[in-house]
Nucleic acid binder design. Structure first.
Lengths: 211, 211, 211, 211
DNA sequence: AATGAATGAGCATTCATTCAT
DNA sequence: GATGAATGAATGCTCATTCAT
């Protein structure tokens, strides 16, 4: 008659289980449609535990965003080695970013889609986490477009626009990936890369849009 | 005992008011967070009217998607004149699309973000409406990338990928637009166009990703 | 574009249509589950007409009970001729009653089942109408059990008990009738009659229940 | 911020309280007129508890029917001893049935009246429970009318008709009981029994309706 | 005479959250 | 540490009823 999960687990393990479950649930149902009950069940624990550990439904969501942002940033950083050429760094960073988006669809949906869409503005932490991600990509672009001599060819603002376009395009393409099993994350990475790099060239050469 | 009744308006007028209000509310709060009461209030009527005219909350949402999709498709079609060159058609069509997204932020958010994010899959009509929009853009790309001689240089599939990237990028950039009042829809259109066209060139020349 | 029913009909015709429809609807759904809209639709008119003619939902119900009680009483009276022997009168009256119950199931359900079951106590008129029906049957029993010389063999109270038993049994048997198409109203009448008459005998002989 | 919470009771106790209250309320108001709030209040708890334990309003109703049917069947079975003569068994069984109907008016009203009257057909369980009750009475009649030698004098079908008549008459007479405090359940039992037994005799002798 | 337009009030149901154990 | 028991506060939806036309 013992309920499923009574093992006294150390706090951080429990917390991880909960956030894992919450990401899945939030990703699938959206913030408002997801219920704390649902999350608790998915984590194999009881509702009060959720409140003891994360404080509130919003707390759970914030924790998800926080952790997934960390994971994404980490994934990108992990592939960029200090001795890479800037261009290779950009290439690999964007590749890692895109692979993360494709491989961790739940994480990405929560991080990018849900966090923008819901009515509640959530705590500043959520906005911060999302900024960390965009900053990371922006930094990649900035670094990757520096000339060998170290000169910048695009400024911060242009880099940020490009970063956002990359994120938006990647987001849109994950759906394509779902619908077309032939496509691989790598092939999509190439498509997205072609945008980013060519955008840079265009910015640089100034001949944008002479249709 | 009835409280002040609203002036009796013919059905189609009230219906338009309701959908106008609903687009605003859904755009701001998301489907689940929005309450029918909220929508009714925003439309200046009472809750039962919403149900009498649109049947259910989901019915309201579907009506919004439907109408906004029509408006967007119409806006794009309105600027493409038969005697334009394909490339000019593409340029103007994408421009119109982007201007619509920028000028009707609420419509776009409901159409693109909300309809993808929520857990509920909604009626097939919603999916249909969203397809109509993407098909329109895809058609523009297909037509606009035909060589003067009429030869296709990209196939349907490639065109669809490009269309999605354009939509995703445009979506991401509307936030940029909000945060940077200096930017105009036109300037953003140029940025997005540069992607599409260059993407086409790349596809065509086959030298994708040799950075 | 003219709506279905715009012919200016004289008041009593409209009223009859409405009550016909209401009996059907109340019988099928019960008082609370039935909606005025439903009734109006079934009558082929618009909701406000119902209120203009019968005043309120309760008014509609009262009117139904009233009219159906009249019809039932009338049906019973119609078959009892003054020159019948009392016993024949009883036989025919009960027969007519039972035939009415079987042939006008909707009327009976509203009159007997719905009027007893619902929470609302309704106006005294409803109780009155139901009493009229029971009084009629009671009177039949009283008259039919008078000895040829005119002496009473059962008193009013005993007659009323018998009348109620007859009504209750008839009510229960209409369901049987529905489920068994072989049975006819007449065969059931015989079964019920055997109860009433034997009951009378028993009352008279005093040898009730020597199991 | 939570208001006074009720003492924590184990689930089955609360469930019983709820069903007790629901039987009272449904009996008095009918299924549709009764509100879940009303039931919760009558049970001294809050609305959500009703849903947590019984799932839905219909679930509450079903639970009521189920339990009251069990109680009625149990009451009848409790008095029939194996070594009774069949006729005594019938006498005591019908007596117990009628005492239950008279003593548990709420239970009976829900079980017999409400369950037949409402528009909603309810789950099959409700129909099943009602059948269990009629089957029990039918079985009594079948057993009780067997001749000492074991021969049947009425068949299943005739027994079922009689059982229904008994139930219908008992139902009708409970109202009489309410209005006439002089009457006792026992005296009514005799009246009903006289029907059943005489009915049997009539069936047997074949001289039905020669008044 | 007849109806489309409109609403206040109520109801079933769900959910985030708390506390006693 | 962990949970079953409990609830206040919404929320989607329906309905009887009215009024302007």
């Amino acid at each position: 008659m013992a309920t499923r999960q009574q093992k006294r687990l150390p706090r951080h393990v429990r917390e991880r289980q909960m956030i894992d479950a919450a990401v899945r649930v939030f990703s699938h149902s959206g913030y408002h449609a997801a219920s704390v009950e649902e999350i608790a069940e998915a984590a194999g624990i009881s509702k009060p535990m959720v409140y003891i550990y994360l404080g509130s439904k919003e707390g759970v969501f914030t924790a998800c965003i926080h952790r997934e942002a960390d994971r994404l940033v980490e994934a990108v950083r992990a592939v960029v080695r200090p001795h890479d050429t800037p261009e290779l760094g950009l290439w690999q960073g964007i590749g890692a970013f895109f692979r993360f988006v494709a491989d961790n669809r739940d994480s990405w949906k929560v991080l990018y889609q849900q966090a923008r869409t819901q009515g509640t503005p959530f705590s500043g932490e959520v906005a911060d986490a999302r900024c960390r991600v965009m900053d990371e990509i922006t930094a990649l672009v900035v670094a990757g477009t520096r000339l060998p001599g170290g000169e910048r060819i695009i400024d911060e603002q242009e880099a940020e626009i490009l970063a956002r376009m990359v994120a938006g395009a990647a987001d849109a393409l994950t759906e394509w990936l779902l619908e077309n099993p032939d496509e691989t994350p790598e092939s999509l990475t190439e498509r997205v890369m072609s945008i980013a790099l060519v955008g840079v060239e265009r910015f640089n050469s100034g001949d944008v849009c002479e249709a």
